[in-house]
C-alpha cells in the first residue's frame, strides 16, 4: 500500500478512474505534458495519451461548457481549473447549464462531469489564488460540492465524484496537499458522497469543519482533551447535499457546537449548518452555535493572510465559550 499525500491520492484516483472507465477524459490548462501546475495530473498523458488527457486553450468558460457537452454525450469529463479564483468565468456554464441540464430536460440529458480546483489560502500565493468561495457553489441547486481533507478521502471521494451521474465541484484544499501521508490502497473503491465523516468521537462538544481547517480543528480537539474535554470532530466532506443526520446525532449527544471555516463569515456555509441546527436541532442545543471563520473581507495577500486564517487559538476560544455557556 503506497504512502501518499493528498495530491498524490488525487493523482492515483484519476489514474484509476481512467484505467477502469474509457469514458473518463481529463482536461484543463497545463494538465498534459506539464502534469498540472500542482502536478495532480502528472504522468497521465504518458499513460493514457493526448486524446484522453487534453491540454486546453486558456478558456475557462469554454472548457466548462465543453465538459457539459461531453458529459451529455456520456463521457465522464474531469476538468481541472487551475485555481478556484479562475472558475468564475465559467459560472455561467455551471449555474445555467451543468447543474440543471437534467432538470431542464426532465432527465433526458444529464451532466456527469467533475470540476476539480485547488482552493483556500495559507500558502502565500499571489492575488486571486487563495479563494474559499465554496458556499457560492453550495448555493447552486443540482450541484454537489465535495471537499476531501485527507489522502484517503481524496482518493475515495474523487472516485465517487467521477462515478456519480451528476455534476460535482470537487475542491481540493491545497494548503494540505502535502501535509499528511497515509497508506491508501489503490483498490478503486469509492467512498460515499453525501456523508459527513466523524474523524474523532467525543461527547462534550461537536466541532464541524471541512478542507484544510481540519488540521487546526483536530489540533483544537487535542488541546481540549488535555483540559478533559471530549470533542467530536466532523468533516462535512460533501457540503451539498448535506448529511444532517450525522450532524444532528452528534449535537444531540454533545449539545454544543462550533463550526470552523476559512471562508468569509457572511453567507459562508457555516451559516447554513447553524440554521439547520436552529430549525431542527434547537432542543438538543445547550449553548448557542458559534462560528470561527475568515473575516468578511477580501482574503488579504500574504503579508496579512495569517491574520485572516482562523487560528487554533480562535477555535479554542470559541469552543471554551460554548462549553462554559449554561
Amino acid at each position: 500500500m503506497p504512502e501518499v499525500d493528498l495530491l498524490q491520492a488525487v493523482n492515483m484516483a484519476l489514474t484509476k478512474a481512467m484505467e477502469t472507465d474509457d469514458r473518463v477524459i481529463v482536461l484543463g490548462e497545463d494538465v498534459g505534458v506539464d502534469g498540472g501546475v500542482f502536478r495532480a495530473t502528472n504522468g497521465l498523458i504518458e499513460r493514457f495519451g493526448a486524446e484522453r488527457v487534453r491540454d486546453t486553450p486558456l478558456s475557462e468558460a469554454g472548457i466548462t461548457g465543453l465538459s457539459v457537452g461531453l458529459a451529455a454525450q456520456d463521457f465522464r469529463p474531469v476538468l481541472e481549473i487551475q485555481f478556484m479564483g479562475f472558475i468564475y468565468p465559467a459560472i455561467d456554464q455551471i449555474i445555467n447549464h451543468a447543474s440543471r441540464l437534467r432538470n431542464r430536460t426532465r432527465g433526458r440529458l444529464t451532466c456527469p462531469m467533475v470540476l476539480r480546483a485547488p482552493f483556500g489560502g495559507g500558502i502565500h500565493a499571489p492575488e486571486h489564488h487563495s479563494e474559499s468561495t465554496e458556499a457560492m457553489f453550495a448555493h447552486i441547486p443540482g450541484l454537489r460540492v465535495v471537499i476531501p481533507s485527507s489522502p484517503k478521502r481524496a482518493y475515495g471521494l474523487l472516485l465517487a465524484a467521477i462515478e456519480n451521474p451528476d455534476p460535482v465541484v470537487f475542491l481540493e484544499p491545497k494548503r494540505i496537499y502535502h501535509v499528511q501521508k497515509e497508506n491508501v490502497e489503490d483498490d478503486g473503491k469509492a467512498l460515499p458522497l453525501d456523508r459527513c465523516f466523524v474523524l474523532r468521537e467525543g461527547s462534550d462538544i461537536t466541532l464541524i469543519t471541512w478542507g484544510a481547517m481540519i488540521v487546526e480543528t483536530l489540533a483544537g480537539a487535542d488541546q481540549l482533551a488535555e483540559d478533559g474535554v471530549s470533542a467530536e470532530v466532523i468533516d462535512v466532506a460533501t457540503l451539498t447535499p448535506l448529511d444532517t443526520d450525522t450532524i444532528f446525532s452528534s449535537v444531540e449527544k454533545t449539545g454544543r457546537c462550533v463550526i470552523v471555516h476559512e471562508a468569509a463569515r457572511t453567507g459562508g456555509f457555516g451559516g447554513e449548518i447553524a440554521a439547520r441546527l436552529a430549525e431542527d436541532g434547537l432542543l438538543s442545543l445547550l449553548a448557542p452555535v458559534k462560528r470561527v471563520t475568515g473575516y468578511d473581507t477580501v482574503i488579504p495577500m500574504p503579508r496579512l493572510e495569517h491574520h485572516y486564517m482562523p487560528s487554533l487559538d480562535r477555535i479554542l476560544t470559541a469552543a471554551r465559550e460554548v462549553l462554559e455557556y449554561s
Binding site: E29, D30, V33, D34, V37, T56, P57, L58
Partner: peptide
Amino acid sequence: WAISVSRKKQT
C-alpha cells in the same frame, strides 16, 4: 507560451 501550452496549441 502560456505556461506549458505553446502558441500552436492555443489557436
